[in-house]
Write a protein that binds this DNA or RNA. Structure first.
Length: 114
RNA sequence: AGAGCAGACCGGACGGCCGCCUCUUCCGGGCUGUGGCCCGUGAAGGGGAGGAAAGUCCGAACUCCACAGGGCAGGACGGUCGCUAACAGCGACUCCGCGCGAGCGGAGGAAAGUGCCACAGAAAACAGACGGCCCGGGCAUGCCCGGGUCACGGUGAAAAGGUGGGGUAAGAGCCCACCGCCCCGGUGGUGACACUCGGGGGCACGGUAAACCCCGUCCGGAGCAAGACCAAGUAAGUUCCGUUGGGAACGCAUCGGGCGUUCCCGGAGGGUGGCCCGCCCAACCCCGGUUUCGGGGACGGAACGGGUAGGUCGCUUGAACCGUGAGGCAACUCACGGUCCAGAUAAAUGGCCGUCGUCCCGGUCUCCCCGGGAUACAGAAUUCGGCUUAUAGGUCUGCUCUGGAU
RNA sequence: GGGGCCGUGGUGUAGUCCGGUUAACACGCCGGCCUGUCAAGCCGGAGAUCGCGGGUUCAAGUCCCGUCGGCCCCG
């Protein structure tokens, strides 16, 4: 049985990788979150972030946690190595969790088709 | 019962599935100098946000820089006595103001000095006389001149204690009584201060120090992005300054120049993260010329510039927390026993679901049931002690006022 | 995480140190003159709870405290 794990080594954390991702990655906007994706990589890694327009740190953290759960539970939908940045928007705080998952799958399939 | 004051505390509970960080032990693998070290979709067990984690407003610990000190400047605090590692904190008490009250708020000095007090008003700070009142003189009275006066009038934030009586030309502490004020003494209190205490003074002393200032107490500067180490990597780069001068004594050498040691004086640079005094600090050789000097390297310092943004340590046992006892009105302290309780770093402490609790709304309308909604403020980042600010709802303790019953 | 600076008409600033009774200046805006028209120029005018709340003072943009927002620096 597949285990839906997401340890630290799967998170993008070096400054070089992150800068490269935002410089060369493809930007895909969404309703609850935007994605930045880079395909010319050998392993799958991800990072989660939220704009400081959301003023309170509690709410920014909650959005990041929900996005992480979305990625964790749907990571096997990805069939190729990708570097992904998930950028939370205000709606992700109150939206239904099922809707977040649906949007993630939808955007993902769009990316993998192209 | 209602209204209110002060303080303390909680700030959802239980369960299921899937996850995250960290520590310990074990398992597997690798390295080994057999002490261990490193790695893991590995296993088990322990721990995993707050009362404010916040604002960064104070105070410390700790680290680095600098340290013989002294002074000035600057900053902070400000009733008294205590508590504390320290504080702008806390406790008790004092005086003043506000409140019916429980209580709340304020606090050195304005008879050391300087400045300011707009407008209005006659006059605004060792003051002055506009109107009015009174007296005298002059013109034949309403007018003018000289004098007295602040009791009254108006102004203002603020105008020479208040009330009553005597007194007077009119008045005024001018005099008297009471109240208030000031000074000296006494008594009580560690003290702020208090006093139905004694004596003296007719009363002089406007406000502002969150204006300068004076008095007292305290304060070196930065901050865990402090700081230490490892790895990788660039340009061991550029510019500037300095590594010295004079004198005395002694010794060596001597034709002369000189050399060495000690002491004194001076100069340049740097440090003492504001300034001054004082103090402290390091570094010499080669070549040419040999009196000053020129060139080169090395060393010390300053400014500018280049590279890295990876890892390890600091990093959580501490003025710690929980009991019990003792001292103290209290803040708090002491003794004994017990506990180990987050350490992340693009940053863990969660996501989804169910049941229940609390509150609100609607139906029902004896709060039983059904449906819907709400469940705050807010997320550790070196660590403590405080303060301040945000906060749905709720609990407890003590007290006050009003009304009712007994 | 730590340190520092700034909030004044629509915009950019002055005034804040040392408090004083119409808060100044430039650009912009509105109206008029000029021109065949526009611009420029000239004349006149409107527009500010001085980020917000409390305190000191007779009096606060200015002094003190709290709070909110914005900007910069440090490895």
């Amino acid at each position: 049985m597949r285990r839906y794990r997401l340890p630290k080594c799967k998170i993008l954390r070096t400054k070089k990788d992150i800068q490269q991702l935002f410089r060369e990655g493809r930007y895909v906007p969404g309703r609850y979150f935007d994605l930045v994706v880079r395909t010319d990589v050998v392993d799958s890694k991800v990072l989660f972030t939220v704009s400081k327009k959301i003023r309170k740190k509690v709410f920014r953290n909650r959005i990041k946690r929900r996005l992480r759960e979305v990625y964790r539970l749907n990571q096997y939908e990805i069939s190729m190595p990708l570097h992904i940045a998930m950028i939370g928007k205000p709606g992700a705080l109150t939206a239904d969790f099922q809707q977040l998952q649906a949007e993630f799958k939808q955007i993902l399939s769009k990316i993998m088709d192209s």
